[in-house]
């Protein structure tokens, strides 16, 4: 069975799904996609199961050849994609013929682009997931980023999806330099001074270049602690906001470690992790405090919209 052949891997393209769960207590972080929302939409538009693995490209997308006909969709960052030289829009399903070349360039808006294939990719599941963990060198394509010459077979390619022309949603990529990110305060919040917490929620923080899938390092007014930020290491959660002694926050992302020894001010709400995934180094973040209940309401609204989209697409399968 054919699939795709990588002609150029781009800056950092990996195979990801929803993540690897169940072994966090042994220290295995879940990894998985950074922009969960773009991931879910891509699978919904293709009529895939919601956890099907796809490619996650970063800043500079890959160039790939189809060695078998299949339908595909692009979501997330706009990387100015072309199929055999013809521009292809994001959030709209297309068919690529055997021999076609899909080429992605630099991200015009956003950071992470997703390339999903109808029927999914044939990649071995390790501990229940196809996700690449670069740190552990596990999953995906031998635990590493994709390189020229790599071939990934399709699982169940679909040359013709029903109602292809209606498999799209309107999506305008946001051209932003400043992002509003909601945060639930908690964990070791009592380690920090009122002034420190005040600064965090009232002044902008800039994403530093040394940010990656593991964590976003931020520059801004230091979040001051009362005595120390050293804690007896405890568990982290996705989006946890760690404050090292420098007072400069680090937000833990998809490749996060499962435990850590810096005090945590709180955590970015799940829905806004997808927003953060598309924020680039140099962009500014403005944090807003919300309650757990509010955060869960936002998540529910997002889930309901995704479910609605999935139902609409599945009607046509």
């Amino acid at each position: 069975m054919g699939g795709i052949k990588i002609r150029n891997g781009g800056a950092l393209t990996t195979i990801q799904d929803q993540g690897r769960y169940g072994a966090q207590e042994a220290g295995f972080g879940p990894s998985g996609v950074m922009d969960r929302r773009a991931f879910r939409i891509a699978n919904a538009l293709l009529g895939n199961k919601e956890t099907e693995a796809m490619l996650e490209a970063t800043l500079l997308g890959p160039e790939i050849e189809f060695t078998e006909t299949d339908c595909f969709v692009l979501t997330g960052a706009d990387m100015g994609a072309t199929l055999d030289g013809v521009p292809v829009a994001g959030y709209r399903v297309f068919t690529a013929q055997k021999g076609s070349i899909l080429k992605l360039g630099f991200a015009k808006e956003g950071v992470r682009g997703y390339i999903a294939f109808a029927g999914g990719l044939k990649v071995p599941e390790i501990m229940g997931s196809k996700s690449t963990s670069l740190k552990v060198k596990l999953g995906g394509m031998e635990g590493r980023k994709l390189e020229a010459g790599d071939e990934i077979p399709f699982l169940n390619p679909v040359a013709k999806l029903r109602h292809l022309e209606r498999r799209s949603i309107s999506h305008s990529a946001e051209s932003r330099k400043e992002w509003k990110i909601r945060v639930v305060l908690g964990l070791q919040k009592d380690y920090f001074t009122d002034e420190g917490i005040e600064a965090f929620f009232s002044t902008p923080y800039t994403i530093l270049p040394e940010s990656d899938r593991m964590g976003y390092r931020l520059e801004g007014i230091p979040v001051t602690c009362k005595e120390t930020v050293d804690i007896i290491s405890d568990a982290t959660v996705p989006g946890a906001i760690q404050i090292p002694a420098s007072g400069k926050p680090i937000i833990l992302m998809a490749d996060r470690q499962t435990t850590g020894g810096y005090a945590k001010l709180g955590a970015v709400i799940t829905a806004d992790l997808s927003v953060l995934a598309q924020a680039a180094p140099g962009n500014k973040l403005l944090f807003e405090q919300v309650s757990v209940e509010e955060a869960q309401k936002v998540l529910k609204t997002e889930r309901d919209e995704l479910k609605k989209l999935e139902r609409r697409m599945n009607r046509w399968l």
């Binding site: 090292p244 420098s246 499962t258 435990t259």
Partner: peptide
């Protein structure tokens, strides 16, 4: 416990005289 990385062992019982703060960055 194991955490931070697969198999990273958090060990208890170090002599207190050895305690040294983590790197600030």
């Amino acid at each position: 416990m194991l955490g931070f990385l697969p198999g990273f062992p958090y060990l208890g019982g170090m002599d207190e005289r050895l305690a040294t703060p983590r790197l600030s960055t």
